[in-house]
Amino acid sequence: MDNMIVSVSPHIRSNDTTTTIMRDVLLALCPALIASVVIFGARALLVAVVCVAACVFFEWGFEKMCKRPNTITDLSAAVTGLILALNLPVGIPIWQAIFGSLVAIVVVKQLFGGIGHNFANPAITARIVMLIAFAGPMTTWAAPNFADAVSGATPLAQLGAGESVSLASLFLGNVGGSMGETSALALLLGGIYLIVRKVISWHTPVAFIGTVFVLALIKGGLTFGVAEIFAGGLFLGAIFMATDYSTTPSTKSGQLIFGIGCGLITCLIRFFGNYPEGVSFSILLMNILTPYISKWTASKPLGGVDA
């Protein structure tokens, strides 16, 4: 019998593909999405659908325009859309959400070559652009459904003003903030799923959250320390954005350095900066350092002899 397929070994491959990895991330984000709908109402779902649809559309459109292969089926654009949505306040005007999606996909991702080539996290960068461009809507926090308050001052603002915050509310997410960042519980569930599925390793989230906890503990004691890690976008950032493959180091030691760096910058901004929150800035700044961290922490070949 002739004409067999001839190829270089290996002749079997694992079942994991880019699509299955992105599908796992989408699944892991579901608890946070559900929590956002429960806490902030149906408009949260609308914002999420708009961002995902816009991101996928921009990816498809830009690739079509540039005659690049279509990559929307790898689901990475959908992941960017969902993460971006969860980073926005529920009352964000729809056109602004679409603009953010454009920045994320076209400017940050596709202009640098598409999946795997961008140096900065698309969702984070888009959020920062929006925070500066639309400062008002981006910091107008709706009150959570189960609170008595009319407007939802964010817990970080309250902590900054020296007010006390209920740790249980913080953990469950019944506080003001971006759609998907408030429920530490929901984000933690997603994070555990990703670690169990080996999509991410524990190194970055643990180093990031651990650093913030230790620094806050030193600054204001145990309750303050716990409140600082549950508040703001720390869990969302540490679990879902500081673990993005192409914009963070891939070695374990590099991930520890990346996480610790993110934690340090976050605390510097939270404790001494003008912004109440610093997670996004910290990740973006560490994204820029990633090539250097990767270089410093490159793995050493076994038995390698220096020439």
């Binding site: 593909t17 880019t18 990895i21 990559t71 790898d74 990475s76 598409g114 999946i115 795997g116 080539h117 493959y245 192409s246 891939s250 070695t251 374990k252 793995s299």
Partner: peptide, 13 residues
Amino acid sequence: TACIKCGRCVSHC
């Protein structure tokens, strides 16, 4: 498809 820099090739070598 395009390399997504997941680092699995490094962590499994």
